[in-house]
Simulated scan of single mutants.
Amino acid sequence: MRVRVLPRETAAAVITSAVSAMGWAVAAATIVLTVPVLVETLAERDRLDDLPLPVLLLAVVLGGVVAVALRPRRWVVLAYLAVAGLATVGYEVVLLADDPGIIETSPYVVNRPTLALVLVGIPATRALIGIAWSFLGLCVAVVVGIVAARIVEQPYHPGFGPLMVFLLSTVAYLTLAAVQLRIRRRVPNFDELEAETRALAHGEDLSRRTTAVVHDTLLNDLAVVMNAPDRLEPHQAERLLDDLETLRGADWISTSAAADAPGEDQAELRNDFARLASEFQWKGLSLHFTGDRRADYRVTSEVSAALLAATRASLENVVRHSGSTSAEVEIIAAPGTITVMITDQGSGFDPGSVAADRLGLRGSIVDRMAAVGGNAKIWSAPGEGTSIVITAPSDEEALT
């Protein structure tokens, strides 16, 4: 059984993003664990009356971490750094205003919220991007400490916590990037190997069919001409013209695929995809179709129209936005469903950054398939290509 996987670069982006996800969890845990330490420290210094406001400000920082984890977008992270930075300034000012000595005896309590500023980033597609966001968080943490020290008119004590967190985050990103690089060097690109295998198989199949057609037409016609009298009989001339038309039309190239079709419905869907390939070839996009020839691809006319339209919209996006000149379209038949997977190795994009009023992905693909009982999922990242999986229900009545 064949195991279907995302393209290598897309999968690598997903794995690298795990470092950011781990950072969110550690940041949240850091804020939560600061509360009992804060209570203990203020109790020892007989300042429990000052406790509510610092706890409230810690809650603001924690809420920001949760917001970033639920909606990891660039603007959300930037808003978090701004709001959480202000909350951290207030937190440090409250602790230092009437008790400057607390920074000497308990610096970890004062600087603890700044660790969360360094840990929170975005799902990074590459190690350098993740490191850059961590560095931005470190810069915000430093500015927070300087501003709080100026407000209370005390010397700035940065502490080593934020810097250590940044270094650990950097090591994590670079280690993961090194592992991925090592894997790329040792493990072959199975997508490329499979494409080469299909190309070889297609060439062998075309060679066999070409030999058969030449034997059935050209060689037989030469034998007729050589053995015929000076003038050809009308039926002989008609046969030669028919064979010539067969070779000129080149319908025989897809004859073997049509012969395997279980019915006219399947043949019609195959022909629709063939016409789609021809249409985009004129637009400069080379399509590589794959699929099990023995599978049943029969669907209702409504589902077929939606499936083809969603596929066409996906390919239009490849032509307009990806910068790629080729794409792979795999058609997968399973009991009760038909799935079309469109993959390109183009520039990619962040699906979460697409505005809600843009109809390309939502209206032409996702909503269109939902209307016929199907669905569409999109995986992409900047610089890592795009994979779109479109699933449609098959015609249950036709299959029985």
Rank of each mutant, 00 (worst) to 15 (best):
D46P: 01
D46L: 12
R47Q: 11
L48W: 05
L48I: 13
L48K: 08
L48Y: 03
D49S: 09
D49F: 07
D49I: 02
D49Y: 08
D50I: 04
D50R: 13
D50A: 15
L51Y: 02
L51Q: 02
P52L: 08
P52K: 07
L53E: 10
L53K: 07
P54E: 13
P54F: 06
V55P: 12
V55L: 10
L56T: 12
L56P: 05
L56W: 09
L56D: 06
L57T: 12
L57P: 09
L58I: 06
L58S: 10
L58N: 10
A59W: 03
A59T: 13
A59F: 06
A59I: 04
V60R: 00
V60T: 02
V60E: 03
V60S: 00
V60G: 03
V61D: 03
V61E: 00
V61N: 06
V61G: 04
L62G: 02
L62T: 03
L62A: 15
L62R: 04
G63N: 06
G63I: 02
G64N: 07
V65Y: 03
V66A: 14
V66P: 01
A67L: 15
A67G: 01
V68G: 04
V68T: 08
A69N: 05
A69M: 07
L70A: 07
P72V: 05
P72W: 00
P72A: 12
R73N: 13
R73P: 05
R74F: 12
R74K: 13
R74I: 08
W75Q: 14
W75E: 15
W75K: 13
W75F: 11
W75Y: 07
V76T: 15
V76H: 09
V76I: 15
V77P: 04
V77M: 14
